[in-house]
Nucleic acid binder design. Structure first.
Lengths: 207, 207
DNA sequence: CGAGTGACGACATTGGCATTTGGTCACGAT
DNA sequence: ATCGTGACCAAATGCCAATGTCGTCACTCG
């Protein structure tokens, strides 16, 4: 299970990319955001936590929001990893498909219940189209496309519909569960609801 | 085109059900909510508008929220009517299906752009599970079930999947566009995005 | 008795002021 | 040069009394 790195451009960063202090900042931010929430932690708090001055933090990040995006990217990476873990276990394309979305959704839900504060950052990122949220969707689309192409090769899935349209449509209909902003409002139907949606999509993929 | 009445129980009402003053209140409320928003209009404003005292309004409604629900029910009725209008024009079941959702969605979007204040009430209703929002979903599910049964009779749609599961799944995957709370975040993809979702669902209904 | 209301309590909202916070910059230390 | 900082500013936020709003009830009037 290899972690996906969706933040190579890493917008909002500056200064030395590989630097121990950067990691200290991120670690402190994750801890503080998780405990007190994004809004209630000040960059002075983070500075105090790592033993440097507030100004020094701005040698590594453009803004507090950039730090938030870094934490958000971590969360969304974990969610994607949760999906990825399912894929490798899947025997058929349909099986991989089912496990992929179940992995994404259950990892998201887990984040919601066990780290509400961080989840709220992810939801906010989705609402404001933060780069990590966009990257998350792009990454999910790529993975989805690979699964569908596999299914088309093995003859499990139909081949008439243009692949891009298929992927786009699937992401659209699964958004109620994939998008943290929307999943929040559909938690009551877990885990049956997404399963029903997945079944419907698989029916639509039938040859 | 017959208007659907989804508020026969009409929770939150009291006093004489059929009464001119009740209608005056509702009319004044629609006007004020539309112009100034739910939060910025006081029940004293409504009282002044109809020329009675504030106390008298409470002979007809349990609360300000109950008035909001009445207005919300009107809006959602209009949306359902927008879907219904499409159905009667549809020639086949698939055509009716497509037109039904296009009608629902375009009417909702219209409400958003031309009466944002009222739309916000509908979104809030969806978020808080107000009775009119629940009734809206129930009504949509009933209508959907009728369309699908028609399609199954004519042989357009597959018959293996249990009808209730089919309906439920379709409502789930279409929620990104049917639910005012979620449609708000998907307006940028109109009208192509819902069309793609509808096409996917129709593929899933193929025999 | 039924239509309609003024006055009232509990709670929510506002407006303006003091404080905090995000972010920059010139500067010191090594 | 590189690493690191205190002092500073505009804008955002928190605070709290004064005001506004919801909802009820005893009451009047015809």
């Amino acid at each position: 299970m290899s972690m996906i790195d969706l933040s190579p451009p890493a917008a909002g960063q500056r200064g030395p990319v590989e630097h121990g202090v950067r990691d200290q900042i991120v670690d402190a931010a994750r801890a503080h955001f998780s405990r007190f929430g994004y809004g209630k932690t000040t960059v002075a708090d983070l500075a105090k936590a790592i033993g440097f001055s507030k100004a020094y933090i701005y040698k590594f990040f453009d803004s507090k929001q950039a730090i938030g995006q870094a934490i958000c990217a971590q969360c969304l990476d974990k969610v994607l990893a949760g999906g990825e873990a399912g894929v490798v276990e899947g025997k058929s394309a349909a099986d991989k498909f089912r496990r992929y979305f179940n992995g994404l959704i259950s990892t998201s839900a887990e984040l919601f219940f066990e780290d509400k504060m961080l989840y709220d950052i992810a939801a906010h990122a989705a609402e404001e189209h933060w780069p990590p949220a966009v990257a998350y969707m792009t990454s999910a689309e790529d993975r989805l496309k690979a699964i569908i192409l596999l299914g088309r090769e093995t003859g499990e899935f139909e081949r008439k519909t243009p692949i891009d349209e298929t992927c786009e449509a699937i992401l659209l209909v699964m958004q109620s569960f994939m998008n943290p902003l929307m999943l929040k409002h559909n938690l009551d139907g877990l885990p049956e609801a997404p399963t029903k949606a997945i079944n419907l999509v698989l029916r639509s993929l039938a040859p």
